[in-house]
Design a protein around this nucleic acid. Structure first.
Lengths: 145, 145
DNA sequence: TTGCTTGCAAAGGATTTGCAACATG
DNA sequence: CATGTTGCAAATCCTTTGCAAGCAA
């Protein structure tokens, strides 16, 4: 059993929640996928393995994963919430191509530090942030010329 | 007639769109409000002046304002899109208090420059970005202790 | 057995759209 | 008058919820 599963089971136990095959399957599939996945995409995959699982269960398990610290929400502003791994996957921001939709994860410690300072200069204690950089990737830049 | 109205009229003309009292009223009310306003909030105000105006019209006019460059969308991730003035209101980011919901506009030219560089280092041509800093404002920090 | 879980379908909330009646240029 | 435009209601889209039946502990 891997670390994430372990965390999940501990989370369930601690909160008097039950270990069900649905939860196991959804977790397993979520963990196998890298990158960002929407509830619907996840549901589509889950359905193939067990057609009896309902969409609501997928949504419910995703909520649990977030509370357990295993998943994190991402919002590219297109009306769909996507989820990505959080465990062993430190904070980062996203670079999104407006042409092809490709996304890259980026971090810049200097920016992070400056964000903290900016917040503090307004008396804020920064807890977290979101940063999305939009532009055109190398490929799409060429096509646009 | 102010500059924004002028821009709006030119936009309408250029696109063979019509100047209607509904559009005028919604624009006028939008311009009078500083800060962020949701379509629903705007509609509530508009209704008081002209109860015959429909919600759809407010949504439609907001789309026009964005295309005309007079408004900009903001998404705090709570499921509601808010709008703010764009004309004569340069780009900035938002500092949002998780306690009381208060928001401040912030800019840091060093961060802006670094964002550009980060994007470029991945071959991207940066067109725009969004940055939301979340934390607790001075007031809320005290209450939490 | 207790009460958390599930799937289903219905409900929700924000936004969009089809349409017939209505105005603008 | 030809087309845009409007208000209304219905439709969408994503997500949540109520509920009765089903299961984990």
């Amino acid at each position: 059993m891997n670390e994430e599963q372990n965390i999940f089971h501990k989370y369930l136990e601690k909160h008097d929640l039950r270990d069900t095959p649905q939860r196991e399957l959804i977790l397993q599939i979520f963990l196998r996928r890298e990158g960002h996945i929407s509830a619907e995409q996840l549901y589509d995959i889950v359905k193939k393995r067990d057609p009896s699982i309902g969409q609501a269960t997928v949504y419910r398990v995703l909520k649990l994963l977030i509370e357990a610290g295993l998943a994190r929400e991402i919002d590219f502003g297109d009306g769909v919430i996507r989820y990505e791994h959080k465990y062993n996957h430190p904070h980062h921001d996203h670079l999104v191509c407006r042409g092809c939709g490709k996304t890259l994860e980026v971090v810049d410690s200097v920016i992070e530090e400056l964000q903290k300072r900016v917040a503090e200069s307004y008396g804020f204690e920064l807890t977290d942030h979101e940063m999305y950089l939009y532009g055109y990737c190398e490929n799409c830049r060429q096509k646009r010329q």
